[in-house]
Design a protein around this nucleic acid. Sequence first.
RNA 1: CGGAGCGUAGCUCAGCCUGGUAGAGCAUUAGCUUUGGGAGCUAAGGGCCGUUGGUUCGAAUCCAGCCGCUCCGACCA
Length: 509
Amino acid sequence: MQRALDINRTRFADWYQAVVRDADMAETSPVRGAMVIKPWGYGVWEQIQQELDRRIKATGHENCYFPMFIPLSFIAKEAEHVEGFAKEMAIVTHHRLKMIDGKLQPDPDAKLEEPLVVRPTSETIIGDAFARWVRSHRDLPLLINQWANVVRWEMRPRLFLRTTEFLWQEGHTAHASEAEAVEETRKMLEVYRTFSEDTLAMPVIAGEKPENERFPGAVNTYSIEAMMQDGKALQAGTSHFLGTHFAEAQGIKFQDDAGTVTLCNTTSWGVSTRLIGGVIMTHGDDDGLRLPPAIAPKQIVIVPMLRDKPEDADVLKYCEDLVAMLRKLSIFGQPVRAHLDTKKIKSAEKRWNWVRRGAPIIIEIGPRDAAGGNVTYMRRDQLREGDKIKSIALPRQEFLEEKAVQLLAEIQHGLYAEAKARLDGNIRCGVTDWKGVEDYYAGSDDDFKGWLRVSWSKPTAAALDAVDTKLKGLKLTIRNAPLDQPASFAPCLFTGAAGVEEILIGRAY
RNA sequence: CGGAGCGUAGCUCAGCCUGGUAGAGCAUUAGCUUUGGGAGCUAAGGGCCGUUGGUUCGAAUCCAGCCGCUCCGACCA
């Protein structure tokens, strides 16, 4: 059967790259590890931003913007934070170039007294502002978010999943009490979970990260974990309870109503363009990307079947009317994003381009549709019937009044249901010994392997390192301890001691 | 930074082992035909074979350095 992509999901890593390329999402750039996000990929990001920004503001946060350069001394203030990020920082040391020996290079006379780090995250520079902004308990809670780019010098970049520079949103908050900061951390995790499921149609498991996977400087780190179509886990978002670590390092203090000076408890939380990689690997198929309507930059695309004949004019007119009528409809509280593709390329090619890009509904209008008042459409989530493309013709009025909006909602829910079934069906419980783990992950790395949900005694320090090393032997990591825990536990799979918690383990991106 | 593979037309690749004037398919351009869905035929354009050096009468082909990409490690909320 002829597919829109030349690689299928059995070669998952190659397939992923093919989708990113053929769906016009992004490409590599002259700068190693940094990507060019193309209009269709950026359009998806804009939809993600728009909806998530709404949810962040609805929970009381306000947007700010902080500098992308951070004085080196700021980073040095929190010991664990430095250690965690030291190996992946870009540093600005000069502010001028000079032609020396015919080569343009940093001017030795223009060396910065204090080097500037290109932000890998903004706790330190935002904390510096917080220290100035917070005086009284009346200034709290301080609830700030920023949309920004950050740089982490990664050794092995992959488009959207791990790039040297990426776009994200980072929330930073300061609170009067520990309880309130913990509540904030959990609240934002829940915002991420519901956003991921409702908007990205990407089911996730929310939970707490083990000690060794914590954000550098955090007391607790929570994550949402999504399962990709190869069974691997993708950490799709994180929320950190920072306790008083950063407050102490940076002097974020307030006077309470009794006049006592107290350290704030702070939090931070973020999701990035990695979410787009998650969407691709959750919903893509062998014909390319399938976008959930909620984030599709164009939800309904009309391809006029033109053939350089007089009736083309009628077809175009019919399409223009149709696109205008579609735009009057609304879905998810917004006008339907309908697009008429009038680009001067072959109609058949246009159709396949939209299939690869994952437009949820593709409408093809030929002279007979125009004359008969029909709409012929195909839905991207159910593109084929057997090997053949499935297209359905309906009277225009019926399509507009009953079908279009209903279809978009159906596609959104259908993609979620499909991914949810995959997640739920591939988390195995009941494995109680290491042999069981080895058996589950035996065989080729290319075989689909899901996750295990096992009981453990939550060891710390050296005992935790031992567990980590053991898991590493099978390329496994602890993803998180899901928030919903049972009342009683099997003995610890690793130590045999009494179990205190259930955790998810699996292979990860 | 270690291991492996790769770099030839816009794209995907063949040719390299065994050195002798640069190939295919797709895409592009033009003409004709076709037209309910990824069309056919004919013709044309397009390449200092990643880069620098070496061996040779002669290098895409053999050798070495460098650069870049992919995969596996190490690293990575």
